[in-house]
């Protein structure tokens, strides 16, 4: 399994760069992963990451767009503005969770 050093932390990742051991995730790692995706994390980003984290712990999967809207209270437009070009994939990666495996 590939490893990488990021912001002084060692993390396990898969071929696509998604973390494979969530225990290695912390806020500094998230900030560094976001930087790699060209994103500087703000409170609005953290709200999204927080919801993904909470929902993953309950459901075991990364929330889809509709769940983000309805349960997380985060509108589609805002998600695309915060994480352009593939909002849920990017947010999941930064949140230290697997690539979303749903079609919607």
């Amino acid at each position: 399994m590939p490893q990488k050093q990021i912001n002084g932390f060692n993390i396990d990742i898969n071929d696509e760069g998604y973390m494979t051991n969530h225990a290695q995730w912390n806020r500094e790692v998230a900030a560094a992963l976001a930087q790699e995706a060209g994103i500087t994390l703000t409170d609005a980003h953290w709200r999204v990451l927080g919801f993904i984290d909470k929902d993953f712990k309950e459901k075991g999967v990364v929330a889809g767009m509709r769940r983000m809207n309805k349960v997380g209270g985060i509108p589609t437009k805002e998600l695309y503005a915060l994480f352009p070009d593939g909002p849920i994939k990017k947010a999941a990666k930064i949140a230290g969770y697997p690539k979303p495996a749903s079609c919607v």
């Binding site: 767009m65 509709r66 509108p75 589609t76 749903s102 919607v104």
Partner: peptide, 18 residues
């Protein structure tokens, strides 16, 4: 169950997504 939205909501979601 799969969180696939009804047609009107889906169209709105796609439009909001750009």
């Amino acid at each position: 169950k799969l969180d696939i939205p009804p047609v009107p909501e889906f169209v709105e979601m796609i439009h909001d997504a750009g």
